[in-house]
Design a protein around this nucleic acid. Structure first.
Length: 582
RNA sequence: GUACCCGUAGCUCAGUUGGAUAGAGUGUCUCCCUCCGAAGGAGAAGGUCGUUGGUUCGAAUCCAAUCGGGUGCACCA
């Protein structure tokens, strides 16, 4: 219905003007939506006013043309113009009700719109350093990334979910050293905590790695030089940490398609490739950077000549160092290499999910991708605000090194996967979340997720009741049953809400905003609960009428469609629907 | 100092990417099960969309200032 109106608008204008000159994206630039005020009809569009600006013609003239076309569509019963150029549309009731059968036939495919037709997109998310288990901040990243990936698939993208492993650098060495210290303890060598320097890791999980190491290698590395044990300890620690991270992801329902390691990029000479690529553009030069404003005057700062990327040309605040004065690569060089790797793998679009603490990093990443892909790859970085973790209103301090942090596993163990996922995505990614353990646990009843779950459980309950009266439900039969008895205002509102669902999924995908999905599910659940309660006072609206199988089937068809849409929404956000909640 | 984000009902947040009379949940008040699940529903009350200008048919939304809060600002990863 929504698409039909959009295409009709496009057709209307094509007769009078060359639409190519307008270059309008009919899916994103005009609104075709249910109006806030019901008096305005079923749908409204602002198309006439949008085009009025582009064509420099009066909105009402354009509105007239569009209305004429809309009225040629048999399903549209009314199309009128309101000041200053809104077009209000009414659609035949039977046409709305056809959606019920359509939803039952299509199931979860109902919300699929192939507007991006197989465009390839890489969604990089989590990418936690393999120096410890995932914590609460990663939980938001993981859930957000996975839902965005699901949404992109809904609009026709071919999605690769990717995790970047930072397995080079000083943090990994610190990890290996920490493991080595604990390893010694397995053989009676006491290591006081003071041996651990600030940059080392002394969480309990280090002992888990150590125990496994000692079992395999026994005391082979005791008393040996660092040069001998550092490399194997790095490799072993990373492998163990990544196993743990993969398990952590699994318990929040996240599966990656690909893990790419920084070390492998290094081994393939990707840093050099990236440097060469930028040199070809003339974006590399040797120079000296000014002292950054952010570091205090007490700190040392040497002005040394280095290899720089001219990132300011692409909107960055300052140019960035690729190679230090001693010729070694910077961390940013690794990211250049990684993003060149992604570009060369042929993705048409890249999406990266990062925590708010990376906000200073976005501009240089955008500059890098823009420069290396010659502006041909669409690149979106989504920042999410940090999760404020509270225990009865008191903020929990977390430090990765001391090992004093709440892990993702802790959260899932206490509140479960579904509540964790729902909490992490039900708010806009730009807004901070207060995640209070005590509240989340004690207020599960108040959690909006349960409101939707309850609607779903009630629907399932009706189906159980139906089967005890009329026998097994035949879904194919429901898909084609006569819906003439569906006439009540609340019933029609539910039908229209279901009809609107694919549009909402599409909009959420285009905006990369996962929080819209739970919001719309709540709206649908609300429509359903209202209808349910109306049946309490008005017996004619009850779903099951023992004396009238035909109208019972029609109402069951509506419920089945509602059930499918909730299932679809839950699938997108990765939550399991509950058949019963007793 | 500077970059990015936030500021909407007592509280927690939406607001479909500039649309019509700004909406939910929660809390307060009043009602609704002889009944398919009351973990629900109907209604009342609650607002200078931080502030001030600007852009236009039209602004919570865009722009410029400004106030308050958050997160960052390496040649470290």
């Amino acid at each position: 219905m929504f698409r039909m109106v959009r295409h009709c608008i496009l057709d209307a204008l094509q007769q009078y003007i060359d639409v190519c000159d307008l270059n309008v994206d009919i899916d994103t630039e005009i609104a075709v939506e249910p109006p806030h005020c019901k008096n305005h009809g079923d749908l409204y569009t602002n198309a006439a006013m949008v085009f009025a600006k582009k064509l420099k013609k009066p909105p009402k003239e354009i509105a007239n043309i569009i209305c004429e076309h809309l009225l040629k569509i048999p399903e549209i019963t009314e199309a009128s113009i309101a000041n200053p150029g809104f077009i209000n549309i009414r659609v035949n009731t039977d046409t709305w009700k056809l959606k019920i059968g359509e939803i039952i036939r299509l199931g979860c495919d109902y919300s699929y719109t192939n507007i991006y037709q197989g465009t390839t997109v890489n969604v990089e998310f989590v990418s936690a350093n393999p120096t410890g288990p995932l914590h609460t901040g990663h939980a938001r990243n993981a859930v957000l990334g996975s839902v965005i990936a699901n949404l992109l698939e809904k609009v026709g993208y071919i999605v690769t979910r990717e995790f970047y492993i930072n397995d080079l650098g000083s943090q990994i060495k610190s990890l290996a050293k920490s493991v080595y210290l604990r390893y010694q303890e397995n053989f009676g060598i006491t290591v006081p905590d003071s041996t651990f320097t600030d940059d080392m890791y002394c969480g309990e999980y280090i002992r888990d790695i150590t125990a496994a190491l000692a079992e395999i290698h026994h005391d082979a590395f005791i008393g040996k030089d660092e040069a001998e044990w550092l490399r194997p300890f790095c490799e072993f620690s990373i492998a163990r940490m990544m196993d743990g991270i993969k398990n952590d992801l699994a318990i929040v329902g996240v599966t990656m398609d690909l893990y790419t390691s920084e070390a492998s990029l290094h081994a393939r000479g990707m840093m050099d490739r990236a440097l060469t690529k930028l040199m070809e553009n003339g974006d590399v030069y040797g120079g000296v950077l000014p002292r950054p404003k952010g570091i205090s005057n007490d700190e040392e700062w040497e002005e040394l000549p280095q290899t720089l990327f001219n990132s300011t040309k692409y909107g960055d605040d300052v140019d960035r160092v690729i190679q230090k004065s001693d010729g070694t690569w910077t961390y940013f060089a690794g990211d250049l290499a990684y993003h060149l790797d992604k570009i060369e793998r042929g993705y048409q679009r890249l999406v990266t999910i990062l925590g708010a603490d990376h906000n200073g990093y976005i501009k240089r990443l955008l500059a890098a991708v823009n420069a290396m892909s010659h502006g041909k790859v669409q690149f979106d970085v989504r920042l999410y605000q940090l999760v404020n973790f509270l225990e009865n209103g008191v903020p929990v301090r977390m430090s990765k090194r001391s090992g004093n942090f709440i892990t993702l596993r802790d959260v899932v163990d206490r509140v479960g996967k579904d509540i964790t996922r729902y909490m992490m995505i039900s708010r806009h990614h730009d807004v901070m979340i207060d995640f209070d353990f005590a509240k989340v646990v004690e207020c599960t009843i108040d959690n909006p997720l349960f409101y939707v779950q309850y609607a779903y459980a009630r629907i399932c309950s009706v189906f159980r009741h139906y089967e005890s009266v009329f026998g097994k439900v035949d879904e194919a039969e429901l898909a084609i049953c006569d819906t003439a008895c569906i006439t009540d205002e609340l019933e029609m509102e539910l039908v229209k809400a279901l009809a609107y669902w694919p549009e909402q999924v599409k909009a959420a995908a285009i905006a990369l905003e996962s929080h819209r999905i739970p919001k719309h599910l709540q709206d649908i659940a609300h429509n359903f609960h209202a209808l349910w309660n109306k049946g309490k006072t008005n017996a004619e609206l009850r779903f099951i009428d023992r004396n009238d199988k035909e109208s019972t089937k029609a109402r069951l068809a509506l419920l089945l469609a509602t059930k499918f849409v909730i299932e679809d929404g839950f699938k997108i956000i990765g939550v399991t629907p509950m058949q019963e909640m007793r």
